[in-house]
Simulated assay, not measured.
Amino acid sequence: MAKLAFLGLGVMGYPMAGHLKAAGHEVTVYNRTPAKAEKWVAEHGGAAAPTPREAAQGADFVMSCVGNDDDLREVCLGKDGAFKGMKTGAVFVDHTTVSAAVTRELAGEAAGHGVAFVDAPISGGQAGAENGQLSVMCGGDQSAYDKAEPVIAAYAKICRRLGESGAGQVTKMCNQIAIAGLVQGLAESLNFAEKAGLDSASVVEVISQGAAGSWQMANRYETMAKNEFEFGFAVDWMRKDLGICLKTGDEIGASLPVTALVDQFYKEVQAMGGNRWDTSSLIARLRKLG
């Protein structure tokens, strides 16, 4: 069992850190809002630290799951950043969805501190985090990945190394690109069924058994039909991720017309007040259009 630090106790990080403690690891947590860290300790045991640096001291592995590029830079490189507290030979595992550029930047900074860096963004949503069934896509040195993979296994359904630093983040972009078009297609299909006077449950029962079937259809069609959107990844975060995808697409010359269109649809959902609705709320936009 390892000595670990976990930085960031949001809807994903909170249960992920819990799985690490349940697996028998020694876990110290840090959260920007200290009360959240104290609540986690009361529930799971372990310890809380007031800064990333103090949380990371003596840890074999430091895991992070924060908001965006700037948040990640701050917990790594800030005045009390984790890199200043990490011992030589430790491994930093970042589960945040950020740009590949900041990942490569921080991997270089980590190396200067004698620390390995693995980018390990995740997919599976809040339910996946709570059930320990996340898909984890990694980039970084093979040796660092080999050390980290048994620890990540505490909350992973699948964990794979896709290449050098940044490869995990680029793979997460592929994931979000695929999801964007799929959710819009599902929203259009269900809205079409409603307009045609069909029973959506009956439609889904049939088409889900063929080529149209998907995780989104199986897990979101009922709540979409009820206009309920409190069950997953928030629109604000999806737009952040799609922005990364579109910027990277421009940089590498990859055309993303559907992704760009769906990003604008999510912008319209935000204008409807749906910033914190889950991504299936694309159907609410279609219903508003009439």
Rank of each mutant, 00 (worst) to 15 (best):
T248C: 04
G168Y: 09
H19S: 07
S281N: 01
F265T: 06
N31M: 04
R160P: 01
K3S: 07
L256Q: 14
A120R: 02
N227I: 09
P52Q: 07
A82E: 07
Q133E: 14
S281M: 09
Q216P: 02
V118M: 04
R161V: 03
E74H: 13
V203I: 13
N275R: 12
L106A: 07
T223A: 15
E268L: 13
T279C: 12
T33R: 06
A22Q: 09
S200A: 04
K267N: 11
W40T: 02
L286M: 10
E230Y: 06
K3M: 04
S208D: 15
V262P: 02
G197V: 04
V118Q: 00
G213R: 09
A193S: 09
M238E: 14
G181W: 05
N227T: 06
Y14S: 10
A218Y: 08
G58E: 03
M63G: 03
P34T: 09
L242E: 06
K247S: 09
L77C: 13
V151A: 11
A284R: 04
E230G: 12
M238C: 11
G128N: 10
L162A: 13
R161W: 04
T103W: 02
E26G: 00
H19I: 10
K21I: 09
V66N: 05
D199G: 04
D146V: 03
G249K: 12
G24N: 05
K247H: 07
K267W: 08
E74M: 14
G185E: 10
I244W: 06
Q133S: 13
G81W: 07
G46Y: 11
V204Q: 06
L7V: 09
K147D: 05
H113L: 01
H95N: 00
K147N: 08
A260K: 08
L4R: 03
A110Q: 07
Q184S: 15
Y155L: 04
V27S: 06
S280R: 06
T28E: 05
L77E: 12
I283G: 02
Q216K: 04
D71I: 03
G58S: 03
A225T: 13
G140S: 03
K3G: 01
R276L: 11
A156Q: 01
G243A: 07
